[in-house]
Design a binder for these strands. Structure first.
Length: 306
DNA sequence: AAGGTCCACAACCGCCAATCC
DNA sequence: AGGATTGGCGGTTGTGGACCT
C-alpha cells in the first residue's frame, strides 16, 4: 500500500508551465510568501499539484536564481563537493545559493559526469578522485552522513564567524555576491530571459511572453496597487522602488530560510566569502590533499557519533 | 529538405523525514 | 502515541531544439 498522491490526479494539469501560470504563481507568492503550498492551487485557481507549484517556484521563479552557463569556478566547486558529499544535490546547492539543486543535478548529469568520465578514462589506473554517487566513494544515505554534512556546515560557519571579524570589510568581493541584491521586474525578466535565450529558444519565447505579460500587468493600476498594498512590495518598473520591492521579495520570512539553499543573495553576502574549507574546495591542487581532508572530515565529524 | 539521433533541461515521481493534530 | 499531512530530496522521464546523415 503506497502513500496516497499529494493531490487528486483528476483535473491536474501537467507539463510545461505557461507564462500566465507563472504570473499567477509569482503574484500569489509575492502576496503570501512561499509557504503552505497545499493551499496554493486552491487559492490561485491553478490546475496544478501543490508540489508542482513549489517546484516551479524553487527551481525557476524564485528570485535570486542564476541561470545559464556555469562558470569554471562553480564547476570546480560542484566537482569537489560531489566528491565530498556524493549526489547530495541540495547540500551542494547550499554552497551555491544562486543555483538550484535541480540545476546542479542536471549540469552534473549532462556535463560534468561525462567530462570526468572522459578524464578518468585517461587515467583509469590511477583511480580517479571523482566518482558517481553510486560508487564506493559515495556514502550510503544515513543519518551519520547528514550529520557529516551538518558538521561541515557548522565548522564552516564557525570559521566564517571567526574570520568575519577581520574580513567583514571585504565582503563585497564575495564570490557569493555575484548577483546584485537589487531586483526589479525588468531585471528579473531580462536576467532570466537572457539565460533562457542561451539555452532554449522555447523558454526564451516563454520569457518574452512573461515579460510582455508582466509589463502589461504592471501597467494595470489595479495590479500594481494590489501588489504594493498587499505586501509592501512593488512590481513597478521604477528602479529604486522596484529594487526595494524585489529585495523584499527576496527576504520572505519562511521556513525555507532555515536552509542555506534558500538564502537570499543578500543573506549569502553576509557569509564570509572563503572559509578555509572553501579555499580548499577551490584549490586546483587540492587533489593531493583531498584524501587527507576527506579522512579528517570523516573522522572528526563522525567522532561523536559512535 | 526530411528523417533520425543526440542533448539539455524542466518537470514529474516516489520515498523519506519533519511536523501537525 | 500514532496516523495524516506537508515539504524536501534525489532519480528519472518527457519534450523540444540542435545537429547529423
Amino acid at each position: 500500500m503506497g502513500r496516497p498522491p499529494c493531490c487528486e490526479k483528476i483535473g491536474i494539469k501537467k507539463g510545461p508551465w505557461t507564462p500566465e501560470e507563472d504570473i499567477i504563481l509569482v503574484s500569489y507568492i509575492q502576496e503570501h510568501g512561499p509557504s503552505n503550498w497545499r493551499s496554493v492551487p486552491t487559492n490561485t485557481g491553478l490546475m496544478r499539484c501543490s508540489k508542482s507549484c513549489r517546484l516551479r517556484w524553487t527551481n525557476y521563479l524564485r528570485p535570486g536564481i542564476k541561470r545559464g552557463n556555469f562558470t569554471d569556478h562553480e564547476e570546480k566547486m560542484i566537482i569537489h563537493l560531489q566528491a565530498l558529499l556524493g549526489n547530495r544535490w541540495a547540500a551542494i546547492a547550499s554552497y551555491l545559493p544562486q543555483r538550484t539543486d535541480n540545476d546542479i543535478k542536471n549540469y552534473w548529469n549532462t556535463h560534468l559526469k561525462k567530462k570526468l568520465a572522459k578524464n578518468q578514462s585517461g587515467a583509469a589506473e590511477d583511480g580517479g578522485d571523482y566518482q558517481d554517487g553510486n560508487s564506493s566513494r559515495s556514502q550510503p544515505k544515513g543519518q551519520w552522513e547528514r550529520r557529516l554534512q551538518t558538521d561541515i556546515h557548522m565548522a564552516k560557519q564557525a570559521l566564517s564567524e571567526a574570520l568575519s571579524l577581520s574580513k567583514s570589510s571585504n565582503n563585497n568581493n564575495n564570490v557569493l555576491s555575484e548577483s546584485s541584491s537589487s531586483y526589479d521586474a525588468s531585471k528579473f525578466v531580462t536576467r532570466t530571459s537572457h539565460a533562457a535565450s542561451s539555452s532554449s529558444s522555447s523558454y526564451a519565447s516563454s520569457y518574452e511572453n512573461i515579460s510582455k505579460l508582466l509589463e502589461n500587468w504592471m501597467k494595470s493600476p489595479n495590479s500594481c496597487a494590489e501588489m504594493t498594498t498587499n505586501s509592501g512590495n512593488s512590481f513597478s518598473s521604477n528602479n529604486s522602488e522596484a529594487d526595494h520591492g524585489f529585495d523584499s521579495l527576496l527576504s520572505f520570512k519562511s521556513d525555507d530560510e532555515r536552509k542555506p539553499k534558500y538564502l537570499s543573495s543578500s543573506e549569502a553576502q553576509q557569509q564570509v566569502p572563503l572559509t578555509l574549507l572553501e579555499k580548499w574546495l577551490f584549490d586546483d591542487g587540492a587533489a593531493q590533499c583531498h584524501e587527507d581532508l576527506m579522512n579528517m572530515s570523516l573522522e572528526e565529524s563522525t567522532s561523536g557519533l559512535f
